[in-house]
Amino acid sequence: MLKKIFNRNNNNTVIPDEQSKKEIPEGLMTKCDKCGNIAYRKELINNEYVCLNCDHHMPLDAWTRIGTLFDEGSFEEWDTHIRTNNPLGFPEYLEKLEKDSKKTGLTEAVVTGKGTIQGNETAFAVMDAGFRMGSMGSVVGEKITRAIERARELKIPFIIFTASGGARMQEGVLSLMQMSKTSFAIKRFSDAGGLMISVMTHPTTGGVTASFASLGDYNFAEPEALIGFAGRRIIEQTTREKLPDDFQTAEFLLKHGQLDKIIHRHDMADVLAKVLRLHAPVSAPEKKEAVKGGQTV
């Protein structure tokens, strides 16, 4: 029916512009970039931006993601005051950050904080691919590291939603070093008994996949998310291998034993809440008294 309205080019219908065809729309209607189905934005919001026709999971910006998961009013944001120094003096880098900041309303490509999912408290980081492709520079690494450290101090779990093109080229080797910094924080958190869940969303690639995204006690993904280390084009160019159609999709990873579970967006909060509940701290049994003469005293 929607298609009919659209085809008639009714004056009351807003035709989606170029941008909204690809991203989350500004307009009234949104076209699915997989099946081409056009839906009212309101309908899509109600459906968590999952295509009503083909079930395609469209990209979510960080705050929309947080809205779909966390109990209303439970959210507290951390470390919004950290900015990059442009360590390589990269031309136009700061201007680009400023532009993306205006576009997304974010200060960087990740939002960190804590909140509750169906009453279960957890720290978390949600990446936003709309900000410099979700790439990881010093600030993203620092914010994630601090969030993990805070979760360790608060003795609460840590959940990360990844969406990233990998390391941020404009910060050179310092971006690379964020991989070891975040992984180090996870080691400290894990040794302290902390629960970490990683949920990889479209797209999760490069240095982000090869660090914290793969380091959850449980690694989940959304359906059909692109997840990989090296880019498809690079692999084809360097190895001249024929790659399967489902190469580097969540389904491909699941099949090869690299993922614990694929979770539909509609089930995400329920599954996460269930995992959090099942890992709630249990107090260890009281230590038995010293054993004397083979008998417990």
Binding site: I82, L174, Q178, F184, R188
Partner: peptide
């Protein structure tokens, strides 16, 4: 940890 946690170039505003 001291070494790796300090790597990066940020400022606080």
């Amino acid at each position: 940890w001291d070494k790796f946690s300090k790597i990066g170039d940020i400022r606080e505003v």
